[in-house]
Simulated scan of single mutants.
Amino acid sequence: MKVKLYSKGLLLVLMGLSLSFSEVFAQNQTVSGKVTGADDGLEIPGVSVVVKGTTNGVSTDIEGNYSLSVNNANTVLVFSFVGYESQEVKSRKPICYQCILSF
């Protein structure tokens, strides 16, 4: 009787630990997307895309595309470019976003 209870308890503990470890290792994700202008819909190269409160960031390429590694899916991305209003976007799943900047 004690052996059965012990083995069931051990099994539950091992299952809980495996779920915990999978959550820890699955936190890094890649957020990617495209930045376009609200006035003409054209891609904007050189837009700064930064995780709010960190120095983790990238600039968009010549076609307005970006790809950024984040710790989890619930981070806030800040999009900024000279002459445009900065935007803050909370990233969620799916993790591909189009950000539209306006003057």
Score class of each variant (00 low, 15 high):
T30S: 09
L42T: 02
S86N: 11
V89H: 09
A73I: 14
N72A: 14
L10Y: 07
V51Q: 10
V13Q: 00
V70N: 07
M15S: 07
Y6H: 13
K93D: 14
D40M: 04
I62V: 15
N74H: 09
V82Q: 08
A73Y: 14
V13H: 01
N28G: 09
L101H: 06
V82N: 10
V58H: 09
N56H: 09
V70K: 12
L19E: 03
G64M: 01
S69Y: 11
L101P: 02
E43S: 01
D61Q: 10
K52Q: 08
G33R: 12
S91E: 01
G64T: 00
V24Y: 13
L17P: 11
S69F: 14
T55Q: 10
S20E: 01
M1D: 03
G41C: 13
N71S: 01
L68N: 06
L5H: 10
V76Q: 05
C96A: 12
S20C: 06
Q87T: 00
S86H: 06
L12T: 08
S86T: 05
M15C: 09
V35W: 14
Q98R: 09
L77S: 01
D39N: 05
V70P: 09
S48R: 12
N56M: 06
L19Y: 04
L12W: 11
N28K: 14
K2H: 13
N28E: 13
L12V: 07
K4F: 01
S32Y: 08
T36V: 00
V24C: 15
Q29P: 06
R92I: 03
M15H: 12
V89Q: 06
R92E: 02
D61R: 11
S91Q: 06
A73E: 07
F103L: 08
N72G: 11
F103C: 03
G53W: 01
D39V: 02
L68K: 08
R92V: 05
Q29C: 05
I95K: 15
V47F: 00
V13P: 00
T54V: 15
T75V: 05
V35N: 09
I44H: 09
V31M: 14
G33Y: 11
L10R: 08
G64N: 04
V76P: 01
L101C: 04
N71Y: 02
T55I: 09
E88P: 15
G64H: 03
N65S: 03
T75Q: 04
V78K: 02
K34V: 12
A38D: 06
M15L: 12
K34W: 14
L17K: 12
P94W: 10
L77K: 05
L19F: 07
Q98D: 02
Y66N: 02
C96E: 10
G64P: 02
N71A: 02
